[in-house]
Write a protein that binds this DNA or RNA. Structure first.
Lengths: 209, 209
DNA sequence: ACCTGAACACCGTTCAAGT
DNA sequence: ACCTGAACACCGTTCAAGT
């Protein structure tokens, strides 16, 4: 094989480097792509191109692709936490607020389907669970626990272990969300909002004093 | 570039072709690999190699990789259906059988984590939902609906729409399973069996007459 | 410190050719 | 009909080199 020298293509001038907060820009671009076309469609090449940056620039800011996805998921938990807290407070921190929380939870999942799936599918790729992700997830969960403790104080909810109650209720709304996104509810064209209201009503009977 | 003829490597003799039921063999090999190492680890090359077959032989039996994964998921729903039916019947087709069903559901997910995840993550890759998969999922769901109708007949469960009841309850057990596999329950080291029993108890209060 | 571009070791899928 | 092996167009990741 003759070793003919191939001239390198011109290098990008250094003053066109991204500089700025590339980490944040990468994260936002990733969220945008995933919201639009799903996780599968996210390639490091595409996200780099969108920001006018080489495909390996990312490695300065994230260990690998799984770390980027973990950061996207963590961002999702922070968004979810704000939605839940808002519903609880606007609803008056009582029974009505609690029901609004349940509906807000399911609505969040339906309005951000890909983002929501990722928040819980992160165990798929990253079994080395990202501690930041765990923390943001725990913080979102805590809103639910606090709301339950408050309702126990008001005599609205039976005085079982709040953690157990919260696990039980999170499982219910998470289950509705997942079945609506990927399960039989989707194919059967079930009215998810109606199901959510029904579930919240049955739940209330189940956890009342 | 000089076009030097590269001699083809010796072709596999035809009498060593797989023949037999290659479709079934591919399916079983895929299930085995996924159970052991997860979906991510499943490559067509590896499954072909395991069966001593070229990596494109698969395309005679499945449209593409997504179709193979869909078939794996469908197989999972058939397995789950048998587990649920067994628990319901052995438990005496009443309140005890119903609670056994709930516990059997969660146990199935915990014992077949990758397979279970796939059954519901199929929407990830294959948005063109496989009709066979939908049917097997529906059949598994029907066991739950039938059990509820029977309990209504016995006066054990309030006479709401059985479909709505079933959606509600499936969401609950699915949520427990998913949170146990990939969610906060995993990281916090929650006793999933205890949580399941607690959930079933609260559920009973919620759906009683 | 930050980013680049080439190289590496993988993928799924297609397709003409063999038996 | 069924299967093969090469080719194609992608990936994520690594790394020496540039500024």
């Amino acid at each position: 094989m003759a070793s003919q020298r191939v001239p390198r293509p011109p290098r990008k001038p250094a003053d066109q480097y991204h500089h700025g907060d590339l980490r944040r820009a990468l994260l936002q671009a990733a969220v945008r792509t995933i919201q639009k076309n799903g996780v599968e469609s996210l390639t490091l090449r595409a996200v780099g191109e969108e920001l006018g940056v080489s495909r390996s620039a990312l490695y300065r800011h994230f260990a690998d692709k799984a770390a980027l996805l973990g950061a996207v998921a963590a961002e999702g938990f922070r968004m979810l936490r704000l939605e839940l807290l808002g519903a609880w407070e606007r609803g008056g921190k009582g029974q009505r607020g609690f029901e609004a929380m349940g509906e807000a939870y399911v609505r969040f999942a339906l309005q951000n389907p890909w983002h929501y799936r990722m928040m819980f599918a992160s165990g798929f790729d990253a079994d080395a669970s990202d501690p930041a992700l765990v923390e943001d997830g725990t913080n979102a969960f805590q809103v639910l626990v606090d709301a339950l403790v408050e309702q126990q104080r008001q005599g609205l909810v039976r005085r079982d272990d709040p953690q157990a109650l919260a696990n039980f209720i999170w499982a219910l709304v998470h289950g509705i969300a997942m079945l609506a996104l990927d399960g039989p509810l989707q194919h059967k064209g079930v009215d998810v909002e109606a199901l959510t209201r029904y579930a919240v009503e049955r739940l209330r009977t189940g956890i009342a004093v």
